[in-house]
Design a protein around this nucleic acid. Structure first.
Lengths: 219, 219
DNA sequence: TCGCGTAACCTACTTCGAGTAAGTTACCTG
DNA sequence: CAGGTAACTTACTCGAAGTAGGTTACGCGA
């Protein structure tokens, strides 16, 4: 009767919260490896050591699972960038800190996150909309920063620049993951340089802080 | 029900080339309406007045059809922007013309194109790669322009700024389609303003050339 | 005008994965 | 230790991707 160890190592039961987190971890990994389309719910379930209906019990659908993954990652990303910017006071510093935090996060998460950056659109329109909503949080953050530091800019310019910065950041993130020789700081520096100048006419004439040197000023 | 047309309107046979174009037209439309995932090959086939195996005969797979759609649109877009920039001589003008052409194209194509902008990642990694390849053409164009007008910029900056401009453009395009009150020129103006300043330290201090009009402007 | 080759086209299937119904087991608590 | 419930399973349905193999219309030379 007592087999040594059953071929299927006995999986413990887990609390709902714990299982959900594990499922999100696994899903993020598998989506990252295979892409959304090519990933089957059966595979995720198997890697969790659980059967498919559990996934549906907790996330409702494949799209739901994807949205949950993206939401979690985006929330984490938002949190990290927000915290990073908290200490800064002048526009340039805030830009720099935010960018470094953003690209470091991406860099650390390998391509699983960059996959999530692109996959969202894979699913139904409602799913895409749900993902856009999380993106909107990020853009709200950026727009807030812009409004604070560039109060003279007209509303439509603020909005447009917010979009520009978001799009540029996402593409830079993708570029970063495809270029192992480029560091997160490199990416952040390019973004900061470009954006600072782009925004220059609107930035509040910052009282010259004790700048040891102008590091990014080439030429 | 229209009395004029018989319930089963006799469909003419068409040459392969003609049918392919029609299929691409229909596919672009349906993908634009429903999104990639929610579109079935049967529906596309039906709207073409043809049965499903024909689609597979000509495009191999659903992914293949999507790639063909995107490739065609991107090629058209590339062509339009390239032609628009041909007449310009100084950086600012080239930027402006390129942007106006780009956003006008998007604007004119409604959301069918903006869908294509986001859908590509929907499918398998190879499909995403194929789409990235068409994107690379566009980035090659931009990088070429940057190299010409900002020869003093280091190679990595050129590459980074290319990504920034592409990402920013795509996101602006998406924003544009969601904001009916914003015109293509508005979008182009914001992009041009931002990018000109962003690139300013590298732009050749070109003395305004007394170029009257662009002679080779092909229209 | 009539064969006749080929390219356009179709019907009828297989396959595979998303999503579900209904039942079973292990844990916690009184 | 009963028994309630939350975690979990097996065994299905259903729909859409993709395919095998046959059928029909058109061009073209005799």
């Amino acid at each position: 009767m007592s087999a040594a160890t059953p071929p299927a190592p006995r999986r413990k039961r887990m609390s709902r919260a714990a299982r959900e987190q594990q499922m999100l971890d696994v899903a993020e990994e598998v989506f990252g490896e295979r892409g959304y389309q090519a990933t089957s719910m059966d595979e995720i379930a198997e890697r969790c050591g659980v059967s498919k209906p559990m996934l549906y019990e907790y996330f409702g659908s494949k799209d739901g699972l994807l949205v949950a993954c993206v939401s979690r990652s985006k929330a984490e990303l938002l949190d990290v960038t927000q915290k990073a910017m908290a200490g800064a006071t002048d526009p340039e510093d805030i830009l720099w800190r935010g960018m470094v935090a953003y690209f470091s996060f991406i860099d650390a998460h390998g391509n699983s996150f960059s996959m999530l950056l692109r996959e969202p659109t894979a699913a139904s329109p409602e799913t895409a909309e749900a993902v856009e909503a999380t993106r909107r949080q990020q853009s709200t953050l950026i727009a807030g920063v812009l409004t604070t530091f560039a109060p003279s800019a007209p509303a439509d310019a603020i909005e447009a620049y917010t979009q520009i910065i978001m799009g540029a950041s996402e593409r830079m993130a993708l570029w970063l993951t495809s270029r192992p020789d480029v560091s997160a700081e490199d990416a952040a520096r390019h973004m900061t340089d470009f954006c600072r100048r782009g925004l220059s006419p609107y930035l509040t004439p910052v009282p010259p802080p004790v700048r040891a040197e102008a590091p990014p000023a080439p030429r």
